[in-house]
């Protein structure tokens, strides 16, 4: 065989490695989760309202953990969505080019701050502050976690949304302005709708990042596996449960496999976020 075609086949094989890794993740996570469902019926897992993995008999109910994940994800989006979009609009529509050139790399830089730093800041500084200001019994709760996750996902949303806004043709803006629309009207009624799919992608990816974030919620969300009645109660999102409990379980126990079942739930939900983002992107092209 010719050397050229050998190289091509080699490159193609190596390129499939990322797909193989993905399948490896799926197989290993789901493979380790299956023994759990031999012990605990699937329905009991997804409808169970209690997570007491070490009590006798143990309870493995998904709902309180899922509720924790959902609460902090929605909370994070309430913070990062308006502010992220506002930032993106400002950078692409209202800022002077020089300001944009400086701020944009800055936003990228901030996206790289490790999550353990946010968690640390939350524990030491934000949580005591929240406790004092809102007069709640514990500062480590869903509210504090949402706030931090919101700030964390800001750069993701702002950066992707800004790219989308920026790729809207200038001619659309000029036509709108020429018809007598103000800058704000042009931005909200012409540019924003034109960049709709990119903005939606940014929201979906931001929410996916918040839902999958581990260290921040592990350190700041409070860790109580109960369905919260208020935003100021401590919660225990899925990611935090896995990270907190995996260090203490006996390898091969039901609890060990239960944590893999949680990881499977987590993987499937982020997969949905990814597919949704792809769909939105695909519709545009």
């Amino acid at each position: 065989m010719k050397r050229e075609s050998i190289i091509e086949i080699l490159l193609c094989t190596v390129s499939l490695f990322s797909l193989v890794s993905l399948m490896g993740i799926v197989l290993s996570i789901f493979g380790e989760a299956i023994p759990f469902f031999r012990e605990v019926p699937f329905l009991d897992f997804i409808t169970g309202k209690r997570w007491y993995p070490t009590s006798e008999p143990p309870c493995f109910g998904l709902l309180p953990l899922l509720a924790g994940s959902i609460v902090v994800t929605i909370g994070a989006m309430l913070v990062s969505l308006p502010i992220g979009l506002g930032t993106a609009l400002y950078l692409s529509e209202f800022a002077k080019p020089g300001v944009r050139e400086i701020l944009k790399p800055f936003v990228e830089l901030l996206a790289g701050i490790p999550s353990v730093i946010y968690g640390f800041f939350g524990m030491v500084i934000l949580a005591p502050l929240v406790q004092k200001i809102f007069r709640v019994p514990v500062g480590l709760n869903a509210f504090t976690a949402s706030l931090l996750l919101g700030v964390m996902t800001l750069p993701t949303i702002a950066s992707i949304a800004e790219d989308a806004l920026n790729s809207v043709p200038v001619t659309l803006r000029e036509a709108s302005l020429a018809l007598g629309a103000t800058k704000w009207e042009t931005a909200t009624r012409i540019v924003l709708p034109a960049a709709k799919s990119g903005i939606l992608t940014s929201i979906v990816l931001g929410a996916g990042r918040a839902a999958g974030e581990t260290m921040t919620v592990l350190m700041v969300a409070g860790g109580a596996a109960v369905i919260p009645r208020s935003i100021f109660q401590p919660v225990r999102p899925i990611t935090a449960t896995i990270a907190a409990e995996m260090g203490e379980v006996a390898m091969g126990s039901v609890h060990y496999h239960a944590l893999f079942a949680l990881a499977a739930v987590l993987f499937l939900s982020t997969l949905c976020f990814n597919i949704l983002a792809e769909r939105i992107k695909g519709r545009e092209g």
Binding site: L16, F17, S18, L19, V20, S21, L22, G24, I25, S28, I29, G31, E32, L205, G208, A211, G212, E213, T214, T239, I242, A243, M246, L259, F260, A263, L266, F267, T270, L271, F273, N274, A277, E278
Partner: peptide, 21 residues
């Protein structure tokens, strides 16, 4: 598909994958 979904997989899932494999 491989690349995009790897990028979207939560880091703790990578941790469990590493542990298992």
């Amino acid at each position: 598909i491989g690349i995009n979904n790897l990028a979207g997989t939560p880091s703790v899932v990578f941790g469990l994958f590493g542990l298992a494999v």
